[in-house]
């Protein structure tokens, strides 16, 4: 099964990123809030082991 959004070879779009609270979409809002929290933490990028649970990250979850 292929879908129209699967277009190998084409560059990915760069999105205009709204501020926290700048979208009514609850899941996108949670991702934006988490990104904002990470960026204000001022830590260097680091990849954690996927076969372990993540500790709670602010804000936890994406509850609408």
């Amino acid at each position: 099964m292929r879908s129209p959004d699967d277009a190998p070879g084409i560059p990915l779009p760069v999105f205009e990123r709204p501020g926290v609270g700048g979208t009514p979409h609850p899941v996108l809002a949670a991702v934006l809030a988490e990104l904002h929290a990470r960026e204000t933490e001022d830590e260097l990028p680091a990849a954690y082991y996927g076969d372990s649970p993540d500790p709670p990250s602010p804000p936890a979850g994406a509850a609408p």
């Binding site: 999105f15 609850p26 949670a30 990104l35 990470r38 960026e39 990028p45 954690y48 996927g50 609408p64």
Partner: peptide, 26 residues
Amino acid sequence: GTRGLPRVRLFTEIAALLLGGSSRTD
């Protein structure tokens, strides 16, 4: 849209990367 939606790590990380952030998963 229901309450108590879990954070799904792989999807959150892909979305974060697409929004210009960095990943926190291997």
